[in-house]
Design a protein around this nucleic acid. Structure first.
Lengths: 212, 212
DNA sequence: GATGGATTTGACCAAGTGGTCAATTCACGT
DNA sequence: ACGTGAATTGACCACTTGGTCAAATCCATC
C-alpha cells in the first residue's frame, strides 16, 4: 500500500513488490481463517511459497504484516463509505451505499472477515480508527440523516442503529459465507442469488425507513 | 448441559459440577476472545483458578471442552428460534423472534461471538448442525413465510435473505459490541439505548416487509 | 570481472503449546 | 481408624511458535 514515490531506489523493487504482494495476500487468507493469534507465520510463508525467514525480511514481525493488512481494509471501507455522500436524495444515497457495501463484501470477503475477527478479539489494532475516523464518519452522517428526518423524507429513527443494520446485514454475506453456503445446499451463492439478495436488502431497508 | 439423570453416582457431583461449570465459563470467555485455535488451555485453567492438569481431568481435550461449549450455544439458539412459531400473525411472530434474538445477544454475547468465530474458521464443529438442523429450520419457516406472502400479509421477498438480515442485525449487537462501544464514546450501550435499538430493529424490519 | 548492497535461506533458539502421568490428597462408607 | 475410588497437581514431554542470524547467492554498476 501507500508507496510514497521512489525515494532512494525503485530498482529491484519490481521483484520485491511482487513477492511482498504474495506474502500480503497469503497473510490475508490466513488471518481471515485463523484470526491474528491463530495465524502462523509458517503457514503464511508456506502459502506464499517462500521460506519463513524470507517473510521476516519483508515484514519484520507478524504484527507488522497484520497491520499492513488491516490498513488496506480500513481504506477499502472508507472508499465504500464515500458512496453514501454522492447523492442528496436519501433513497439514492442509501441505495448506493448498501450496494457498495454488498459489492465490497462480495469482492473482498477476506477483508470483512479480518475486520470481524479483529473486533471479536477486542479491536486492539483498529481501536484508534474506530474511535476517531469511524466515530467522525458516523457522527457526520447522523447529522445528514437527522436533516432527512426533519424534512420528512425518512421516518424518524436513531441514525446510528440504522447504520449498524446496514453494516451487519451487508458484512454478514462475507463473514457468514460458510453458513450461507451450508444453507444453500453446500454451494456458494451464485451471482444471480447474490444480486437478488442485494436487491432485497436495499428494498427492505428502504421500505423500512420510508414514511407512509 | 443435558444431564441424563444420575446413573451411577450423583455423590460428590455437587463440587464436581461446580468446578466443571467454572471451567466451562472460563472456556466460553477465552474461546469468545481468542477463537478456538487462539485459546489456550493454560489461559482457561488460569481464569478458572485451577491447575491446567485439573482441566484435563474434567475435559479430556481442548476440543471436547469446545464442543461442550458449542452444544449449549446451539441449544440456546434453537430456544430463541422457537419464539418465531408461537404466533400465527406475521407481525407478532417476527416481533417476538427479533426480540428474542436481541435479548439473547444482550444476555449472552459470548455465545454469539463463539458462533461467529466458529463460522469464520470454516465451521468445522457445527457444520453438521448447519446442514441438518438449521437447514431444516429455515426451510420450514420459509414455507410459513411464503404462505404469508401468498395471502398478501407481507410483501414478496425471498425468506432466507430476510432471516439473514435478522440474524446479522441482532447478532451484530453481540459480535461487534466492542465496535459499538467505541462509537458510543467508550461506554457499552445502556439498557435504555439497547431497548431503543431493539425497538428500531423490529420497527424498521416490520415496515420493510409490510405491504403498502 | 570485481565490488557491494539487496536478497535468500537453512539452522537455530527460547518460549509456549496441548496433553500425560505418577504421586498425592481428599471424603465418604464401613 | 481404615480402605477405596474420586479428585488434585507438580513435573514432565514432544511439538509448535515467532523470531534471529550468519553464511550464501544474486545482480546492477563500475
Amino acid at each position: 500500500m501507500t508507496d510514497t514515490a521512489p525515494p532512494p531506489r525503485p530498482a529491484r523493487s519490481a521483484g520485491r513488490e511482487l513477492k511482498e504482494k504474495g506474502l500480503f495476500e497469503a497473510a490475508r487468507a490466513v488471518f481471515a481463517e485463523e484470526g491474528f493469534k491463530g495465524a502462523t507465520t509458517a503457514e503464511i510463508a508456506r502459502r506464499a511459497g517462500v521460506p519463513k525467514a524470507n517473510l521476516h525480511y519483508y515484514f519484520p514481525t507478524k504484527e507488522a504484516l497484520y497491520r499492513a493488512v488491516t490498513e488496506e481494509i480500513l481504506s477499502d471501507w472508507l472508499a465504500a463509505a464515500s458512496s453514501f455522500d454522492e447523492k442528496d436524495d436519501p433513497k439514492e444515497a442509501i441505495t448506493a451505499y448498501i450496494g457498495a457495501k454488498m459489492d465490497l463484501a462480495r469482492a473482498d470477503p477476506l477483508g470483512s472477515r479480518i475486520w470481524a475477527s479483529e473486533i471479536l478479539r477486542g479491536a486492539p489494532v483498529i481501536k484508534d480508527f474506530l474511535e476517531t475516523t469511524l466515530a467522525e464518519w458516523i457522527a457526520s452522517r447522523e447529522a445528514i440523516m437527522r436533516r432527512w428526518i426533519e424534512t420528512g423524507k425518512i421516518r424518524p429513527l436513531e441514525p446510528r442503529y440504522f447504520f449498524y443494520m446496514i453494516w451487519a446485514t451487508t458484512q454478514h454475506y462475507a463473514d457468514f459465507e460458510d453458513q450461507i453456503r451450508a444453507l444453500n445446499g453446500g454451494a456458494p451463492l451464485s451471482d444471480e442469488q447474490f444480486q437478488k439478495a442485494k436487491a432485497q436488502v436495499v428494498d427492505t431497508i428502504l421500505h423500512g425507513i420510508t414514511p407512509l
